[in-house]
Design a binder for these strands. Structure first.
Lengths: 226, 226, 226, 226
DNA sequence: GATGAATGAGGGTTCATTCAT
DNA sequence: CATGAATGAACCCTCATTCAT
């Protein structure tokens, strides 16, 4: 995924065939280099020289395809949209667990850095700002618009509970753990959130595993949707 | 509140007297300029020239007090730690409402920018990284270590609820609204979170803003597990 | 007149047929694009990309016909030589008026720019330098070598008058007005020069516009020398 | 006047004392470098690197004093304004001869290049365009507003002669010779113009020296104003 | 102790020119 | 033959940092 010697050709000694940027694979290669660098050094410290070097292209070549650094970054991030798989499991708790799992499944080791880069770049570039809202809201929106609707139809949302916040909560917790604690988000975190916070909110004691000091019910046999 | 462009201090005519940086007020003035700029343009785009200009000092003077830009920023952020007022109201819901309120009370119009600046600068500067963890965890830690302990003593945490997540949740939601939606966090958001998510989690239906211990509506349809 | 942005040639729908550069019309089209751009932006700021775009050709194609930017420009300018119509009207004043008129007749709205481009490019390219001398001297030379000769034969040049300067003068004045004052040279300027400066020099009071051999007013107060 | 080793310090080996740009001599040194380069390569090809090298300064230093290349050039040209010494000799012909002489006295070997640079740069920079009009019109204006006025009072301008063109003519001829013929303008050219074109226009046969084929009067004892 | 000034090392972007198809 | 694509070398401008006063 990263660049380095892992590019096409295999041999690190030099690229014999110049693959044009019109080639989709080559294009993806460049955008991958951008993403890697974005994650590593952020938006401001990402230089075109760096990209050119990683992608084994010349700066002028990059500028032939993208009009500016900002556009290049926007393009790279746009091709890296997370996908949420929304499945109806008949139960909101499991629906959300599935959403979170599919969200984090596409999560690579550099997504934390990308998140910060996106926040950082949004300040300078209006298009990135739009992308940020789009990208970071999408998971919640997607969840709210279908999973939440189904849950409401089933009468799963207790009175007095703010449905929107209910759905935002798991994503917010993941985000915070990732941004603040530098945690790699994994399935345990998801289960902690789903069982230890979401399920109880819905009035299900749901066999949470994480409740510190709270005893957990033994039957934690959550059958995952997959 | 910060320095800004206008002459701070009271005499509008402009201070010609060169106040040395050893003077604590002068020092604070400089650090305030740094904070304002951090919030406005972020870490990377904060230049020493900008700071010097805002603080009406020369760059060389700044370098006499601080060895580098990174250290200057670290110093500035260190003096801007949020304060959480933890009061025992006898009820976790209200304890948390108080915590959030006191947290946001110290929140200035530029804290959103500072948050991003902190995330951004953490990447380059190890000291900032430490600061970030410290600053962003502190609210939760403070809450967890005292309010949560009290709640546990009172038996307020239902079985199956992850106490730590319980306390993290409100902060995570605020953070997400602020970072992603560019929302100005206000008391309504706090009440929504406390009443619409925290209280129900504790088995209390949220009784509207400020309603301490409002009794729960009967149709809470708590479907038991299994 | 030149190519411009609109589809030249008549079919507005756009020419899809690739006309080779060996075709004289296509060649002229390219050179016209060069002239237009030269006039608009000058020599240094004329880029091959710009030419290619205006001429709807690719840069590589241009380089197949012309070895360098300099040569392309030289070629373009060489095809744009001004034509002077020298007619014997029997009187130097009117001969010169005719010369100037024919000179300015071929003057397009972009000749001022071309003039500067020529001066500018001469510095870099030796061939352009030669072209400049050629192009800018030609009007005067042409005038001097025929009209002046005729005038001498007729005895129109008064003693003490430098014949060469006499002929240069109108052109120099036009040039200066164009280059310095950014004036669009028109017939009024010509008449002013011819009647207000040239005719008196020849001992004829200028008889107004076009007045061929208008008789001189009696109070010409020609103070004789000494 | 040029740069190279002729700068301060004499020794080419290196500048031991860094003279600040606030020093007027150092400043003039830089501006002289700019003028020399402008004359040599023109406006577009003048690079800040080149200036820095010639002036033995760093680019950043230049940018501390001047906000842009355009401003630097404007500044350099503004300090190079020609001076016209207008003296009342009691006779327009000699007044003009004096004006031209004083004009060309300040003329250095690189003024021709500067002229072109000014024309060239005017296209890009609005301030330079203003400077151009100012600089190139000033000689004529100065002459017209005082020498011409005096001449009119004395009744030296024959009827039918356009006074403005009369005064423009010598300057236009010099300009043309300089720009087109790459001639170094000297006193002979001035005398040719004054005696062979200006004087006759005023109805004085004026002992011209240049009239080709026209015999010159022997008493060419023009007493110069000095 | 405060400052005006200087600067090496980039940073984004462009250009004339060359390949490969 | 025409062209899409690639690129080394600049070019204008900026920044963190260091001197000399």
């Amino acid at each position: 995924m990263a660049s380095g010697a892992g590019g096409p050709g295999g041999q690190s000694a030099g690229r014999l065939r110049k693959v044009p940027l019109s080639n989709p694979d080559r294009r993806r290669e460049v955008l991958d280099a951008v993403l890697t660098l974005l994650a590593e050094v952020g938006y401001e410290r990402l230089t075109m020289d760096l990209v050119a070097q990683r992608a084994r292209a010349s700066k002028a070549t990059l500028y032939q395809r993208w009009p500016s650094k900002a556009q290049l970054v926007v393009d790279a991030l746009q091709e890296h949209q997370p996908v949420l798989a929304d499945q109806d499991t008949g139960c909101l708790v499991e629906d959300v667990r599935g959403l979170l799992r599919s969200w984090l499944a596409g999560w690579t080791r550099y997504d934390r850095g990308l998140l910060i880069a996106l926040l950082e770049g949004s300040r300078t570039d209006a298009e990135l700002a739009g992308l940020r809202r789009e990208r970071l809201r999408r998971p919640v929106r997607a969840a709210a618009e279908s999973a939440l609707a189904r849950a409401r139809r089933r009468g799963e949302i207790p009175a007095g509970v703010d449905g929107e916040l209910l759905l935002e909560m798991p994503f917010a917790l993941v985000l915070m753990h990732v941004l603040v604690q530098e945690e790699e988000p994994g399935p345990e975190l998801i289960d902690r959130i789903v069982d230890g916070a979401l399920a109880p909110l819905l009035g299900q004691s749901g066999g949470g595993r994480g409740g510190r000091g709270a005893d957990t019910s033994p039957d934690r046999t959550r059958t995952p949707p997959g």
